[in-house]
Amino acid sequence: MSTSLPDTEAIERAGLKAWPGIEEKWDGSWVRRAAGGYTKRANSVQCLDPDDFEDADLRVISACTWMIIRQVKPVFRITPLAPYELSATLDESGWQTIGASHVYAMALDDREADPQAEFLSLGDPRFLAAQQKLRDYDAATLQGLQNLTAAIKTPATGIVLTRDGEAVASAIMAIADGIVVAGNVITDSTRRRQGLGKAMMNSGFAWARREGAHAAAVNVEAGNTAALALYSGLGYAHQYDYHYRIPGAPK
């Protein structure tokens, strides 16, 4: 069995399915996504073909209008698949660069699920309560999470790891095209360095293997040193980088 990892386009397309927008519109290989503002990734525009750059300036305007109509701030997600002409157009218009991030991936092998890991539907009140507690979500943000997870159509699970009856780690795992994509990964900030994140993630990998996944991918902010250490320790390897572009401040 080959252990080669999926390429950039395969990871990106899996990510679009595993973490979708509530509303999506394709313009050639440019995809617009809106999800009520919950996460930049699900509320952004990106391109999956570096050769699809014709009329980039007009398409940027059209995409921005589409997002504004949906009450979402215009955001472009720039991966290695973005055409140079798109970045140049944004540069000329004074767009800022924010949110430097990495994509990590690995081939899946056999992992042990923690006995205290629960695999719940994404709408399960116990999963939502764990996410709200660990991420300190207010009611509006929790509703945003619920709205987005309702749009996930691929095999997915919410994971909650408990200790002494308390939720101490949680994540979403969704499988698309054989790749399990992790999102909303969180550990109790008062119980770091206890192996809880690793136990929770390995539990998710065990679930994903049972569901037929052969690879795993995750997005992580460049400055999140704790997450980078966790993912490296689990066996993930850096694949590529991306960032976001937002309109510059008015002069």
Rank of each mutant, 00 (worst) to 15 (best):
Met1Phe: 11
Thr3Ser: 10
Ser4Ile: 05
Leu5Cys: 00
Leu5Arg: 05
Pro6Glu: 02
Thr8Lys: 07
Thr8Gln: 14
Glu12Lys: 13
Glu12Cys: 06
Arg13Gly: 02
Gly15Ser: 11
Ala18Phe: 00
Trp19Val: 02
Trp19Lys: 00
Gly21Ser: 11
Glu23Met: 01
Glu23Gly: 08
Val31Ala: 04
Ala34Thr: 12
Thr39Gln: 07
Thr39Asn: 09
Arg41Leu: 12
Ala42Gln: 06
Ser44Asp: 11
Val45Gln: 09
Leu48Thr: 12
Asp49Cys: 14
Pro50Cys: 01
Pro50Phe: 04
Pro50Ile: 09
Asp51Ala: 15
Phe53Thr: 05
Phe53Arg: 12
Leu58Cys: 08
Leu58Val: 06
Val60His: 06
Ala63Cys: 07
Thr65Met: 04
Ile69Gln: 12
Gln71Glu: 14
Phe76Thr: 00
Thr79Lys: 00
Pro80Val: 13
Pro80Leu: 04
Tyr84Met: 13
Ala88Pro: 01
Leu90Phe: 03
Asp91Cys: 06
Glu92Cys: 08
Ile98Phe: 10
Ile98Gly: 00
Ala100Met: 13
His102Ile: 04
His102Asp: 13
Val103Lys: 01
Val103Ala: 09
Asp114Ala: 15
Glu118Thr: 08
Glu118Gln: 15
Phe119Arg: 00
Leu120Ala: 09
Leu122Gly: 09
Asp124Ala: 12
Pro125Arg: 06
Arg126Trp: 09
Arg126Val: 09
Ala130Leu: 03
Leu134Ala: 03
Leu134Tyr: 01
Tyr137Asp: 13
Ala140Thr: 15
Leu145Val: 14
Thr149His: 12
Ile152Cys: 00
Lys153Cys: 11
Thr154Met: 08
Gly158Glu: 08
Val160Gly: 10
Arg163Phe: 08
Arg163Lys: 11
Ala167Val: 03
Ala167Ile: 01
Ala167Cys: 08
Ala169Arg: 03
Ser170Lys: 12
Ser170Phe: 00
Asp177Gln: 08
Ala182Cys: 14
Asp188Met: 04
Ser189Lys: 14
Met200Pro: 01
Met201Gly: 01
Met201Asn: 00
Met201Arg: 08
Phe205Ala: 10
Ala206Asn: 12
Trp207Met: 02
Arg209Met: 03
Ala215His: 11
Ala216Glu: 00
Val218Lys: 05
Val218Gln: 03
Asn219Ile: 07
Glu221Ile: 13
Gly223Cys: 01
Asn224Pro: 01
Thr225Ala: 14
Ala229Val: 08
Ser232Met: 10
Gly233Asn: 03
Leu234Thr: 02
His238Met: 03
His243Asn: 02
Tyr244Phe: 14
Arg245His: 05
Ile246Ser: 02
Ile246Met: 05
Pro247Ala: 13
Pro250Asp: 15
Lys251Thr: 11
